[in-house]
Design a protein around this nucleic acid. Structure first.
Lengths: 131, 131
DNA sequence: ATTCGATATGTTCAATCAAACATATCTGCA
DNA sequence: TGCAGATATGTTTGATTGAACATATCGAAT
């Protein structure tokens, strides 16, 4: 490993997770919240986003609420009632935060990939989106 | 944020965690296990290591056992009985794995620090050992 | 042989986290 | 005005995790 004998590490890989947090250590956004926002952006619906990601509507809604509460502003504009029952879309701030997280994610995936190369003797890694 | 208006992110920072895992996604080593090995190396005792890290002996012992079981080889040589009741020390392989993890950790802390600079508008990060 | 102090390990109890369940609310449209 | 379909939210049940408890084993030294 690390250039030395890495024979024992056939089935080992490097995994990591990334969070935005408040200074009081409360989670604001991780992969779950991020991919929810992404699906909301794509589908215009919290319900569809939850279904796509195979989490309960209740859970998806809770994730968004918690994040919004921590941040103190809205990530998603939600309308209920009406023709199709309702719909959701990202606020401008939601879109901004999403993009920032995406950039961090990409950069860090890239960095980790580089670092991991030094341990190429069987030690691999996953990108965040593979999890 | 990311060069744009980041005024809202005063209290936000970037946190991350790192694991070595088996392909079947079982944890082999994270910060907990790593710092245990470090303390064992320093003190020559699993008991003292556990106390230093303020976890129960039972838990510390379980962490080591799980990791060893996943890997299929010993990280720590443990002797019981004798003058002082017993003692523990790292196997060569334990020391190797520790060092590899340390290098990964350092490199990735460094990488994340760099990446984070692009988001210097209030978005900070912690190194692993700060958690 | 007995003691001492560390390792070894199953068990049980508590707390935390997510899943499931159950309703309620809202509003364009037929 | 009532239906449809999505959002809104409390409650309860279940599962996973870790803390706590209780013993057992080991072997050098006395």
């Amino acid at each position: 490993m690390a250039g030395s004998k890495g024979d024992k590490y056939y089935n080992v890989f490097l995994d990591y997770r990334l969070w935005l947090k408040t200074i009081s250590n409360e989670g604001i956004m991780g992969e779950g919240c991020f991919s929810l926002l992404l699906e909301i952006k794509n589908s215009g619906s919290l319900k569809e986003a939850a279904e796509k990601l195979e989490v309960s509507y209740r859970k998806a809604w809770g994730i968004i609420r918690k994040s919004e509460n921590m941040l103190g502003f809205k990530l998603v504009d939600k309308q209920r009632g009406g023709k199709d029952g309702g719909h959701s879309f990202l606020t401008e701030e939601g879109a901004n935060l999403m993009q920032a997280y995406q950039e961090l994610k990409d950069d860090i995936d890239e960095s980790i990939k580089k670092v991991t190369k030094k341990f190429f003797h069987r030690i691999n890694h996953k990108t965040l989106s593979e999890n």
